[in-house]
Amino acid sequence: MADINYEITAHLGVLSESPKGWTKELNLVSWNGRDPKYDIRDWAPGKEKMGKGITLTKEEAVELQTLLHSLD
Score class of each variant (00 low, 15 high):
residue 20 K to C: 10
residue 31 W to Y: 11
residue 35 D to T: 12
residue 37 K to N: 09
residue 17 E to D: 14
residue 14 V to Q: 12
residue 41 R to D: 01
residue 29 V to T: 07
residue 16 S to W: 06
residue 40 I to Q: 01
residue 18 S to N: 14
residue 43 W to P: 10
residue 15 L to M: 14
residue 42 D to H: 06
residue 26 L to R: 07
residue 27 N to S: 04
residue 30 S to T: 05
residue 34 R to Q: 13
residue 16 S to V: 02
residue 36 P to A: 05
residue 22 W to Y: 12
residue 18 S to P: 10
residue 30 S to M: 02
residue 36 P to S: 06
residue 20 K to R: 15
residue 42 D to I: 08
residue 30 S to D: 04
residue 35 D to H: 08
residue 41 R to V: 03
residue 20 K to W: 10
residue 40 I to M: 02
residue 28 L to D: 02
residue 37 K to I: 06
residue 29 V to E: 04
residue 23 T to N: 10
residue 30 S to L: 07
residue 21 G to W: 07
residue 24 K to F: 00
residue 34 R to C: 12
residue 38 Y to P: 01
residue 43 W to V: 06
residue 38 Y to I: 04
residue 31 W to E: 02
residue 40 I to G: 02
residue 26 L to W: 08
residue 33 G to T: 11
residue 25 E to K: 00
residue 42 D to F: 10
residue 42 D to Y: 14
residue 36 P to Q: 04
residue 20 K to Q: 13
residue 37 K to F: 02
residue 24 K to R: 11
residue 38 Y to D: 09
residue 39 D to A: 01
residue 40 I to S: 07
residue 14 V to L: 12
residue 26 L to P: 04
residue 14 V to Y: 09
residue 41 R to C: 09
residue 35 D to N: 13
residue 14 V to E: 15
residue 16 S to C: 11
residue 15 L to Q: 14
residue 43 W to T: 01
residue 34 R to G: 13
residue 32 N to V: 08
residue 38 Y to K: 08
residue 15 L to C: 13
residue 17 E to L: 08
residue 19 P to D: 13
residue 16 S to I: 03
residue 30 S to Q: 00
residue 19 P to N: 15
residue 20 K to T: 15
residue 31 W to C: 00
residue 28 L to Q: 11
residue 26 L to Q: 05
residue 38 Y to Q: 06
